[in-house]
Write a protein that binds this DNA or RNA. Structure first.
Ligand SMILES: [Mn+2]
Ligand SMILES: [Mn+2]
Ligand SMILES: [Zn+2]
Ligand SMILES: [Zn+2]
Lengths: 136, 136
DNA sequence: GAGTATATTGAGAAAGATTCGCATTAGTAT
DNA sequence: ATACTAATGCGAATCTTTCTCAATATACTC
């Protein structure tokens, strides 16, 4: 039961929210748009209104349960927040999404922000390229 | 006359395209949405259809004259391509956009891509924070 | 466990950004 | 100047996301 997970972050444990959270945990695909979540859940018979999917994903984001990304597409992409910050590398041919974490880059970002007098709150690094499977 | 600039990149030198290109060069604001460009030009009396602004900015992007960014907003942001690649740091309070270039980060990105078997084509790094003017 | 106050849901309408369709107009090369 | 073709501008259409609101489900009290 994830009921408690929701209550812990201040959200009522409603059926749609539980369904969506369970779906995200069970999905083999980590990065999905709201539409992806909506359609995939329909196929599983777990149907939830599209407006609710959008609302709940936004609530999960505020609660820190999921992270929202703005890749170079026209829509938001969400992923379950597993506690480990990372950045992304996307294949421009097949759309595959890989992840990485680089302490050197993380540190440099803080230095740069500090040098420009900024207090850093977040960052998003997306590398685009051609994945091994899509070469030539 | 920028007529030649347009022809050089394979675009017919039409009045709307010249107006937009001149506007971008003259603007003190470097980062603008299509809507920003459209409205600012209206105010200057240089009016061009909104659809044309969208089309032309996209053509300029393909031609390498401008760069398109996807910051965490619901729309694209364009800037004149002055030939020097750089990344961005945005103030989450006032919306200011600053720029930076860090060779260490650039290099690390290539290493990471190579390690994962990717051929890098592009990247986008956006740092969010609170600018000096917006501290407390 | 039923009763109640209140937050949440779902469906469709609405909004914001961008693209499309097409008749009209403007560049460009004879 | 003429003619061929590409580009423009308008509104309609599309896509993603949010909003409205009546119906419903959750959590709390007794
Ligand atoms: Mn990820
Ligand atoms: Mn810039
Ligand atoms: Zn690929
Ligand atoms: Zn600021």
């Amino acid at each position: 039961m994830d009921s408690q997970d929701l209550k812990n972050v201040g959200l009522k444990a409603t059926l749609p929210r539980l369904k969506i959270l369970n779906f995200l945990h069970a999905s083999p695909v980590r990065h999905m748009s709201a539409e992806d979540v909506y359609k995939s859940m329909l196929e599983t018979g777990e149907d939830v209104g599209l407006a609710t999917v959008y609302r709940v994903l936004t609530q999960f984001e505020s609660a820190g349960l999921v992270t929202r990304h703005h890749f170079d597409e026209g829509h938001s992409v969400f992923e379950l927040n597993l506690g480990e910050h990372h950045d992304h590398i996307l294949c421009v041919k097949c759309g595959k999404v890989d992840e990485f974490f680089d302490p050197v880059i993380e540190d440099r970002q803080y230095d740069i922000a500090r040098n420009q007098g900024y207090t850093i709150t977040d960052h998003a690094l997306v590398v685009y390229g051609v994945c091994p499977d899509c070469q030539d």
